[in-house]
Design a binder for these strands. Structure first.
Lengths: 222, 222
DNA sequence: ATCACGGGCGACCAGCGGACGGTGAGCCA
DNA sequence: TGGCTCACCGTCCGCTGGTCGCCCGTGAT
Protein backbone atom coordinates (compact mmCIF):
# COMPACT_ATOMS: atom_id res chain seq x y z
CA UNK A 1 0.00 0.00 0.00
CA UNK A 2 2.86 2.34 0.72
CA UNK A 3 4.79 1.12 -2.26
CA UNK A 4 4.53 2.06 -5.91
CA UNK A 5 2.14 4.94 -5.32
CA UNK A 6 2.95 7.99 -7.38
CA UNK A 7 6.29 6.48 -8.27
CA UNK A 8 5.96 5.72 -11.97
CA UNK A 9 4.00 8.78 -13.02
CA UNK A 10 6.94 10.87 -14.15
CA UNK A 11 7.74 12.33 -17.54
CA UNK A 12 10.17 10.22 -19.51
CA UNK A 13 13.07 7.82 -19.43
CA UNK A 14 16.66 8.99 -19.24
CA UNK A 15 20.12 7.50 -18.89
CA UNK A 16 21.62 7.11 -22.34
CA UNK A 17 25.31 6.69 -21.77
CA UNK A 18 26.94 4.18 -19.42
CA UNK A 19 30.32 5.92 -19.80
CA UNK A 20 32.31 4.15 -17.10
CA UNK A 21 35.14 6.40 -15.97
CA UNK A 22 37.09 3.98 -13.73
CA UNK A 23 39.94 6.14 -12.52
CA UNK A 24 40.74 4.16 -9.36
CA UNK A 25 44.17 4.91 -7.86
CA UNK A 26 44.63 7.99 -5.64
CA UNK A 27 44.56 6.36 -2.22
CA UNK A 28 42.40 8.25 0.23
CA UNK A 29 42.88 9.15 3.87
CA UNK A 30 41.44 5.69 4.65
CA UNK A 31 41.76 5.93 8.41
CA UNK A 32 38.78 6.38 10.73
CA UNK A 33 35.99 5.97 8.25
CA UNK A 34 32.86 5.52 10.28
CA UNK A 35 31.40 5.92 13.73
CA UNK A 36 32.32 2.94 15.85
CA UNK A 37 33.52 1.09 12.78
CA UNK A 38 35.68 -1.75 13.93
CA UNK A 39 36.35 -3.54 10.68
CA UNK A 40 39.89 -3.73 9.36
CA UNK A 41 38.97 -3.07 5.75
CA UNK A 42 40.58 -6.30 4.53
CA UNK A 43 44.19 -5.79 5.47
CA UNK A 44 45.56 -5.12 1.99
CA UNK A 45 46.46 -1.57 1.00
CA UNK A 46 43.10 -1.05 -0.74
CA UNK A 47 41.04 2.13 -0.56
CA UNK A 48 37.35 2.10 0.35
CA UNK A 49 35.30 2.88 -2.76
CA UNK A 50 31.76 2.84 -1.42
CA UNK A 51 30.42 2.97 2.06
CA UNK A 52 29.35 -0.37 3.42
CA UNK A 53 25.62 -0.92 2.94
CA UNK A 54 23.27 -0.19 5.80
CA UNK A 55 21.52 -2.93 7.72
CA UNK A 56 18.59 -2.57 10.09
CA UNK A 57 19.94 -2.30 13.64
CA UNK A 58 18.37 -1.31 16.92
CA UNK A 59 19.61 1.75 18.82
CA UNK A 60 23.05 1.18 20.31
CA UNK A 61 23.70 -1.90 18.23
CA UNK A 62 26.96 -2.10 16.29
CA UNK A 63 26.60 -3.54 12.81
CA UNK A 64 28.45 -6.83 12.31
CA UNK A 65 30.44 -7.64 9.20
CA UNK A 66 30.89 -5.19 6.35
CA UNK A 67 27.78 -3.20 7.16
CA UNK A 68 26.83 0.07 8.78
CA UNK A 69 24.06 0.43 11.34
CA UNK A 70 21.24 2.96 11.49
CA UNK A 71 22.78 4.90 14.37
CA UNK A 72 25.57 5.69 11.96
CA UNK A 73 23.05 6.72 9.29
CA UNK A 74 21.38 9.16 11.66
CA UNK A 75 24.77 10.39 12.81
CA UNK A 76 25.45 11.40 9.19
CA UNK A 77 22.43 13.72 9.31
CA UNK A 78 23.82 15.40 12.43
CA UNK A 79 27.16 15.79 10.66
CA UNK A 80 25.46 17.46 7.71
CA UNK A 81 23.80 19.86 10.11
CA UNK A 82 27.21 20.81 11.46
CA UNK A 83 28.56 21.33 7.95
CA UNK A 84 25.55 23.50 7.15
CA UNK A 85 26.20 25.62 10.24
CA UNK A 86 29.79 26.11 9.13
CA UNK A 87 28.66 27.09 5.62
CA UNK A 88 26.17 29.51 7.16
CA UNK A 89 28.83 31.11 9.34
CA UNK A 90 31.15 31.57 6.37
CA UNK A 91 28.32 33.04 4.29
CA UNK A 92 27.36 35.49 7.05
CA UNK A 93 30.98 36.51 7.51
CA UNK A 94 31.27 37.24 3.79
CA UNK A 95 27.89 38.93 3.49
CA UNK A 96 26.65 36.30 1.03
CA UNK A 97 23.33 34.52 0.75
CA UNK A 98 22.94 32.25 3.75
CA UNK A 99 21.42 28.80 3.09
CA UNK A 100 18.70 27.59 5.46
CA UNK A 101 18.68 24.05 4.06
CA UNK A 102 21.26 21.40 3.25
CA UNK A 103 22.07 22.41 -0.32
CA UNK A 104 24.51 21.20 -2.97
CA UNK A 105 26.93 23.73 -1.55
CA UNK A 106 26.86 21.95 1.81
CA UNK A 107 27.50 18.56 0.23
CA UNK A 108 30.40 20.08 -1.69
CA UNK A 109 31.76 21.61 1.50
CA UNK A 110 31.47 18.30 3.34
CA UNK A 111 33.40 16.54 0.58
CA UNK A 112 36.13 19.20 0.60
CA UNK A 113 36.35 18.84 4.37
CA UNK A 114 37.18 15.16 3.86
CA UNK A 115 33.76 13.70 4.64
CA UNK A 116 33.69 11.82 1.34
CA UNK A 117 31.23 9.33 2.83
CA UNK A 118 28.53 12.03 2.74
CA UNK A 119 26.76 12.45 -0.59
CA UNK A 120 23.50 13.90 -1.78
CA UNK A 121 21.72 10.82 -3.19
CA UNK A 122 22.29 8.87 0.02
CA UNK A 123 21.19 11.64 2.36
CA UNK A 124 18.09 12.44 0.33
CA UNK A 125 17.23 8.74 0.12
CA UNK A 126 16.83 8.32 3.87
CA UNK A 127 15.54 11.77 4.90
CA UNK A 128 12.13 10.44 5.89
CA UNK A 129 13.71 7.74 8.03
CA UNK A 130 15.64 10.42 9.87
CA UNK A 131 12.42 12.43 10.12
CA UNK A 132 10.70 9.58 11.92
CA UNK A 133 13.70 9.25 14.22
CA UNK A 134 13.37 12.97 15.07
CA UNK A 135 9.60 13.17 15.39
CA UNK A 136 8.80 9.92 17.17
CA UNK A 137 11.85 8.12 18.44
CA UNK A 138 9.71 5.48 20.18
CA UNK A 139 7.97 4.53 16.95
CA UNK A 140 11.24 4.64 15.06
CA UNK A 141 12.88 2.31 17.57
CA UNK A 142 9.93 -0.06 17.54
CA UNK A 143 10.06 -0.24 13.75
CA UNK A 144 13.80 -0.87 13.77
CA UNK A 145 13.44 -3.70 16.28
CA UNK A 146 10.55 -5.27 14.40
CA UNK A 147 12.34 -5.19 11.05
CA UNK A 148 15.61 -6.41 12.52
CA UNK A 149 13.83 -9.31 14.20
CA UNK A 150 12.10 -10.31 10.98
CA UNK A 151 15.42 -10.09 9.14
CA UNK A 152 14.10 -7.51 6.67
CA UNK A 153 16.51 -5.63 4.46
CA UNK A 154 17.12 -1.89 4.58
CA UNK A 155 14.90 -1.20 1.58
CA UNK A 156 11.89 -2.75 3.25
CA UNK A 157 12.49 -0.84 6.48
CA UNK A 158 12.94 2.40 4.55
CA UNK A 159 9.65 1.94 2.70
CA UNK A 160 7.79 1.29 5.92
CA UNK A 161 9.09 4.48 7.55
CA UNK A 162 6.65 6.48 5.42
CA UNK A 163 3.62 5.03 7.16
CA UNK A 164 3.97 6.45 10.69
CA UNK A 165 4.99 9.82 9.22
CA UNK A 166 1.78 10.05 7.26
CA UNK A 167 -0.10 9.17 10.44
CA UNK A 168 1.66 12.01 12.25
CA UNK A 169 0.76 14.37 9.41
CA UNK A 170 -2.87 13.24 9.64
CA UNK A 171 -2.94 14.30 13.29
CA UNK A 172 -1.47 17.71 12.50
CA UNK A 173 -3.63 18.92 9.64
CA UNK A 174 -1.65 17.19 6.86
CA UNK A 175 0.91 19.96 6.63
CA UNK A 176 4.13 17.97 6.35
CA UNK A 177 6.17 21.07 5.54
CA UNK A 178 5.04 22.72 8.77
CA UNK A 179 5.93 19.55 10.68
CA UNK A 180 9.44 19.52 9.25
CA UNK A 181 9.91 23.25 9.81
CA UNK A 182 8.77 23.07 13.42
CA UNK A 183 11.56 20.66 14.32
CA UNK A 184 14.97 22.35 14.57
CA UNK A 185 17.02 19.41 13.29
CA UNK A 186 14.55 18.49 10.58
CA UNK A 187 13.87 21.99 9.28
CA UNK A 188 17.14 22.02 7.37
CA UNK A 189 16.06 19.09 5.16
CA UNK A 190 13.83 19.31 2.11
CA UNK A 191 10.61 17.33 2.47
CA UNK A 192 10.96 14.30 0.17
CA UNK A 193 8.64 14.42 -2.81
CA UNK A 194 7.30 10.95 -2.17
CA UNK A 195 6.40 11.73 1.45
CA UNK A 196 4.55 14.83 0.32
CA UNK A 197 2.69 12.83 -2.31
CA UNK A 198 1.75 10.13 0.17
CA UNK A 199 0.38 12.73 2.59
CA UNK A 200 -1.62 14.33 -0.19
CA UNK A 201 -3.02 11.03 -1.43
CA UNK A 202 -3.94 9.92 2.07
CA UNK A 203 -5.57 13.25 2.88
CA UNK A 204 -7.63 13.06 -0.30
CA UNK A 205 -8.84 9.53 0.30
CA UNK A 206 -9.51 10.27 3.96
CA UNK A 207 -11.58 13.28 2.95
CA UNK A 208 -13.45 11.25 0.34
CA UNK A 209 -14.15 8.47 2.84
CA UNK A 210 -15.44 10.81 5.54
CA UNK A 211 -17.64 12.72 3.09
CA UNK A 212 -19.17 9.51 1.72
CA UNK A 213 -19.81 8.29 5.26
CA UNK A 214 -21.43 11.50 6.42
CA UNK A 215 -23.50 11.07 3.33
CA UNK A 216 -24.05 14.52 1.92
CA UNK A 217 -23.90 18.23 2.48
CA UNK A 218 -20.13 18.05 2.35
CA UNK A 219 -19.20 16.56 -0.99
CA UNK A 220 -19.44 18.28 -4.35
CA UNK A 221 -19.47 21.62 -2.58
CA UNK A 222 -18.05 23.56 -5.50
CA UNK B 1 29.89 56.34 -3.32
CA UNK B 2 26.83 54.20 -3.78
CA UNK B 3 27.60 53.64 -7.42
CA UNK B 4 29.99 51.32 -9.09
CA UNK B 5 30.81 49.39 -5.95
CA UNK B 6 30.98 45.65 -6.47
CA UNK B 7 29.36 46.06 -9.84
CA UNK B 8 32.10 45.22 -12.30
CA UNK B 9 33.72 42.39 -10.39
CA UNK B 10 31.92 39.50 -12.00
CA UNK B 11 33.27 36.55 -13.91
CA UNK B 12 33.17 37.08 -17.64
CA UNK B 13 31.38 38.70 -20.52
CA UNK B 14 28.41 37.11 -22.19
CA UNK B 15 25.97 37.92 -24.97
CA UNK B 16 27.36 36.43 -28.13
CA UNK B 17 24.43 36.37 -30.49
CA UNK B 18 22.26 39.35 -31.32
CA UNK B 19 19.70 36.99 -32.87
CA UNK B 20 16.81 39.38 -33.33
CA UNK B 21 13.60 37.39 -33.58
CA UNK B 22 11.21 40.16 -34.60
CA UNK B 23 7.98 38.27 -34.85
CA UNK B 24 5.68 41.27 -34.49
CA UNK B 25 2.07 40.58 -35.55
CA UNK B 26 -0.31 38.72 -33.19
CA UNK B 27 -2.26 41.62 -31.75
CA UNK B 28 -2.68 41.40 -28.00
CA UNK B 29 -5.63 42.16 -25.75
CA UNK B 30 -4.52 45.80 -25.85
CA UNK B 31 -7.26 47.19 -23.62
CA UNK B 32 -6.71 48.40 -20.06
CA UNK B 33 -2.97 48.17 -19.79
CA UNK B 34 -2.01 50.01 -16.64
CA UNK B 35 -3.37 51.47 -13.43
CA UNK B 36 -4.88 54.91 -14.08
CA UNK B 37 -3.43 54.94 -17.56
CA UNK B 38 -5.19 57.56 -19.59
CA UNK B 39 -3.16 57.49 -22.78
CA UNK B 40 -4.78 56.41 -26.02
CA UNK B 41 -1.85 54.35 -27.20
CA UNK B 42 -1.45 56.32 -30.43
CA UNK B 43 -4.77 55.83 -32.16
CA UNK B 44 -3.58 53.44 -34.87
CA UNK B 45 -4.27 49.72 -34.49
CA UNK B 46 -0.85 49.14 -32.91
CA UNK B 47 -0.17 46.86 -29.95
CA UNK B 48 1.87 47.99 -26.92
CA UNK B 49 5.22 46.21 -27.00
CA UNK B 50 6.89 47.48 -23.87
CA UNK B 51 5.59 49.21 -20.79
CA UNK B 52 6.14 52.95 -20.73
CA UNK B 53 9.29 53.87 -18.82
CA UNK B 54 8.99 54.92 -15.20
CA UNK B 55 9.53 58.49 -14.09
CA UNK B 56 10.01 59.77 -10.57
CA UNK B 57 6.64 60.88 -9.18
CA UNK B 58 5.45 61.73 -5.71
CA UNK B 59 2.72 59.69 -4.02
CA UNK B 60 -0.65 60.25 -5.65
CA UNK B 61 0.82 61.90 -8.71
CA UNK B 62 -0.25 60.62 -12.14
CA UNK B 63 2.58 60.43 -14.65
CA UNK B 64 2.18 62.76 -17.66
CA UNK B 65 2.91 61.69 -21.21
CA UNK B 66 3.97 58.17 -22.13
CA UNK B 67 5.36 57.38 -18.70
CA UNK B 68 4.39 55.40 -15.63
CA UNK B 69 4.65 56.71 -12.08
CA UNK B 70 6.14 55.08 -9.01
CA UNK B 71 2.76 54.38 -7.40
CA UNK B 72 2.15 52.11 -10.36
CA UNK B 73 5.56 50.48 -9.86
CA UNK B 74 4.79 49.68 -6.23
CA UNK B 75 1.31 48.50 -7.22
CA UNK B 76 3.00 45.89 -9.40
CA UNK B 77 4.70 44.46 -6.31
CA UNK B 78 1.33 44.13 -4.60
CA UNK B 79 -0.03 42.38 -7.69
CA UNK B 80 2.85 39.92 -7.62
CA UNK B 81 2.02 39.16 -4.01
CA UNK B 82 -1.53 38.32 -5.02
CA UNK B 83 -0.30 36.05 -7.81
CA UNK B 84 2.04 34.35 -5.34
CA UNK B 85 -0.86 33.73 -2.97
CA UNK B 86 -2.83 32.14 -5.78
CA UNK B 87 0.11 29.95 -6.74
CA UNK B 88 0.48 28.95 -3.10
CA UNK B 89 -3.19 28.02 -2.82
CA UNK B 90 -3.02 25.89 -5.96
CA UNK B 91 0.15 24.18 -4.71
CA UNK B 92 -1.41 23.42 -1.31
CA UNK B 93 -4.54 22.07 -2.97
CA UNK B 94 -2.44 19.73 -5.10
CA UNK B 95 -0.06 18.73 -2.32
CA UNK B 96 2.93 20.17 -4.17
CA UNK B 97 5.87 22.20 -2.95
CA UNK B 98 4.60 25.61 -1.87
CA UNK B 99 6.77 28.62 -2.77
CA UNK B 100 7.41 31.22 -0.07
CA UNK B 101 8.98 33.71 -2.47
CA UNK B 102 8.11 35.22 -5.84
CA UNK B 103 9.68 32.61 -8.10
CA UNK B 104 9.88 32.04 -11.84
CA UNK B 105 6.71 30.02 -11.45
CA UNK B 106 4.87 33.08 -10.13
CA UNK B 107 6.05 35.24 -13.03
CA UNK B 108 4.92 32.53 -15.43
CA UNK B 109 1.53 32.36 -13.70
CA UNK B 110 1.15 36.15 -13.88
CA UNK B 111 1.89 36.08 -17.59
CA UNK B 112 -0.60 33.28 -18.19
CA UNK B 113 -3.18 35.24 -16.22
CA UNK B 114 -2.78 38.09 -18.71
CA UNK B 115 -0.53 40.35 -16.65
CA UNK B 116 2.05 40.53 -19.42
CA UNK B 117 3.32 43.81 -18.01
CA UNK B 118 4.86 41.89 -15.08
CA UNK B 119 8.25 40.37 -15.73
CA UNK B 120 11.18 39.15 -13.66
CA UNK B 121 13.98 41.54 -14.71
CA UNK B 122 11.80 44.58 -14.02
CA UNK B 123 10.56 43.41 -10.65
CA UNK B 124 14.03 42.36 -9.50
CA UNK B 125 15.46 45.67 -10.72
CA UNK B 126 13.37 47.77 -8.37
CA UNK B 127 13.01 45.44 -5.36
CA UNK B 128 15.10 47.65 -3.11
CA UNK B 129 13.03 50.70 -4.05
CA UNK B 130 9.92 48.81 -3.00
CA UNK B 131 11.74 47.74 0.17
CA UNK B 132 12.35 51.35 1.14
CA UNK B 133 8.70 52.13 0.41
CA UNK B 134 7.69 49.31 2.79
CA UNK B 135 10.20 49.95 5.56
CA UNK B 136 10.22 53.73 5.74
CA UNK B 137 7.47 55.34 3.70
CA UNK B 138 8.40 58.82 4.98
CA UNK B 139 11.98 58.51 3.76
CA UNK B 140 10.78 56.97 0.50
CA UNK B 141 8.37 59.85 -0.09
CA UNK B 142 11.00 62.46 0.77
CA UNK B 143 13.42 60.88 -1.70
CA UNK B 144 10.79 60.79 -4.43
CA UNK B 145 9.92 64.44 -3.92
CA UNK B 146 13.56 65.50 -3.87
CA UNK B 147 14.44 63.65 -7.05
CA UNK B 148 11.31 64.77 -8.83
CA UNK B 149 12.06 68.38 -7.95
CA UNK B 150 15.61 68.11 -9.20
CA UNK B 151 14.35 66.52 -12.42
CA UNK B 152 16.47 63.40 -11.89
CA UNK B 153 15.80 60.32 -13.99
CA UNK B 154 14.60 56.98 -12.65
CA UNK B 155 18.06 55.44 -12.73
CA UNK B 156 19.45 58.10 -10.40
CA UNK B 157 16.54 57.74 -7.99
CA UNK B 158 16.87 53.97 -8.04
CA UNK B 159 20.58 54.13 -7.20
CA UNK B 160 19.95 56.45 -4.31
CA UNK B 161 17.34 54.16 -2.75
CA UNK B 162 20.15 51.90 -1.55
CA UNK B 163 21.51 54.47 0.85
CA UNK B 164 18.67 54.76 3.41
CA UNK B 165 18.26 50.97 3.34
CA UNK B 166 21.87 50.47 4.35
CA UNK B 167 21.30 52.99 7.13
CA UNK B 168 18.31 50.98 8.33
CA UNK B 169 20.40 47.81 8.25
CA UNK B 170 23.12 49.56 10.27
CA UNK B 171 20.59 50.27 13.01
CA UNK B 172 19.39 46.66 13.07
CA UNK B 173 22.63 44.72 13.26
CA UNK B 174 23.33 44.64 9.51
CA UNK B 175 21.07 41.64 8.91
CA UNK B 176 19.28 42.69 5.77
CA UNK B 177 17.73 39.24 5.28
CA UNK B 178 16.15 39.43 8.74
CA UNK B 179 14.83 42.92 7.93
CA UNK B 180 13.20 41.67 4.73
CA UNK B 181 11.79 38.56 6.40
CA UNK B 182 10.31 40.52 9.29
CA UNK B 183 8.10 42.54 6.94
CA UNK B 184 5.13 40.55 5.61
CA UNK B 185 5.01 42.19 2.17
CA UNK B 186 8.76 42.25 1.73
CA UNK B 187 9.47 38.73 2.95
CA UNK B 188 8.31 37.26 -0.35
CA UNK B 189 11.09 39.03 -2.29
CA UNK B 190 14.69 37.89 -2.59
CA UNK B 191 17.19 40.36 -1.15
CA UNK B 192 18.99 41.93 -4.14
CA UNK B 193 22.64 40.93 -4.37
CA UNK B 194 23.84 44.50 -4.64
CA UNK B 195 21.97 45.58 -1.50
CA UNK B 196 23.49 42.69 0.40
CA UNK B 197 26.95 43.62 -0.86
CA UNK B 198 26.50 47.26 0.07
CA UNK B 199 25.44 46.31 3.60
CA UNK B 200 28.44 44.03 3.93
CA UNK B 201 30.89 46.62 2.60
CA UNK B 202 29.47 49.32 4.85
CA UNK B 203 29.53 47.06 7.89
CA UNK B 204 33.17 46.18 7.22
CA UNK B 205 34.30 49.76 6.81
CA UNK B 206 32.23 50.88 9.80
CA UNK B 207 33.88 48.18 11.91
CA UNK B 208 37.32 49.16 10.65
CA UNK B 209 36.68 52.85 11.37
CA UNK B 210 35.41 52.24 14.89
CA UNK B 211 38.28 49.93 15.74
CA UNK B 212 40.88 52.43 14.50
CA UNK B 213 39.20 55.20 16.47
CA UNK B 214 39.02 53.25 19.71
CA UNK B 215 42.66 52.71 19.02
CA UNK B 216 43.52 49.29 20.31
CA UNK B 217 42.36 46.20 22.16
CA UNK B 218 39.69 45.74 19.54
CA UNK B 219 41.38 45.52 16.18
CA UNK B 220 43.43 42.65 14.87
CA UNK B 221 41.62 40.41 17.31
CA UNK B 222 42.09 37.27 15.24
C1' DA C 1 11.77 64.70 -39.03
C1' DT C 2 15.83 63.53 -36.66
C1' DC C 3 18.79 62.35 -32.85
C1' DA C 4 20.68 60.88 -28.40
C1' DC C 5 19.40 59.17 -24.30
C1' DG C 6 18.15 55.68 -21.07
C1' DG C 7 15.73 51.81 -19.46
C1' DG C 8 12.45 47.61 -20.40
C1' DC C 9 12.78 42.98 -20.66
C1' DG C 10 14.27 38.82 -23.91
C1' DA C 11 17.40 35.65 -23.41
C1' DC C 12 21.32 33.71 -21.41
C1' DC C 13 24.16 30.87 -17.81
C1' DA C 14 25.95 28.52 -13.73
C1' DG C 15 24.31 25.83 -10.70
C1' DC C 16 20.22 24.00 -8.20
C1' DG C 17 16.97 20.38 -6.49
C1' DG C 18 15.72 16.07 -7.74
C1' DA C 19 15.93 11.42 -9.70
C1' DC C 20 17.45 6.94 -11.75
C1' DG C 21 19.56 2.69 -12.29
C1' DG C 22 24.48 0.31 -13.48
C1' DT C 23 28.05 -1.35 -11.15
C1' DG C 24 29.99 -4.08 -7.95
C1' DA C 25 30.26 -5.19 -2.89
C1' DG C 26 28.52 -8.54 -0.10
C1' DC C 27 26.71 -13.02 1.74
C1' DC C 28 25.24 -17.60 1.29
C1' DA C 29 25.46 -22.15 -0.40
C1' DT D 1 34.29 -20.22 -5.21
C1' DG D 2 30.35 -18.85 -7.94
C1' DG D 3 26.20 -16.69 -8.27
C1' DC D 4 22.79 -13.46 -7.49
C1' DT D 5 20.77 -9.99 -4.68
C1' DC D 6 20.31 -5.19 -3.63
C1' DA D 7 21.72 -0.52 -2.63
C1' DC D 8 25.35 3.20 -3.14
C1' DC D 9 26.19 7.19 -5.44
C1' DG D 10 27.95 8.90 -10.36
C1' DT D 11 25.66 11.25 -13.41
C1' DC D 12 22.06 13.08 -15.65
C1' DC D 13 17.99 16.70 -16.46
C1' DG D 14 14.36 20.39 -16.21
C1' DC D 15 14.49 24.29 -14.23
C1' DT D 16 15.79 28.02 -11.07
C1' DG D 17 17.65 32.51 -9.52
C1' DG D 18 20.31 36.02 -11.26
C1' DT D 19 22.01 39.03 -14.77
C1' DC D 20 23.39 41.69 -18.97
C1' DG D 21 23.00 44.71 -22.60
C1' DC D 22 20.24 45.10 -27.23
C1' DC D 23 16.88 47.47 -28.98
C1' DC D 24 13.69 50.87 -29.38
C1' DG D 25 10.37 54.07 -27.17
C1' DT D 26 10.62 58.69 -25.96
C1' DG D 27 11.08 63.91 -25.63
C1' DA D 28 13.84 67.69 -27.15
C1' DT D 29 15.26 70.14 -30.92
Amino acid sequence: MWDGMAAGSNKQRRRRKPKRAKITASLEDDNETAAGDQDDNGGGGSERQREHPFIVTEPGEVARGKKNGLDYLFHLYELCREFLIQVQNIAKERGEKCPTKVTNQVFRYAKEAGASYINKPKMRHYVHCYALHCLDEEASTALRRAFKERGENVGAWRQTCYEPLVAIAARQGWDIDAIFNAHPRLAIWYVPTKLRQLCHAERSSAAAASSSITGGGDHLHF
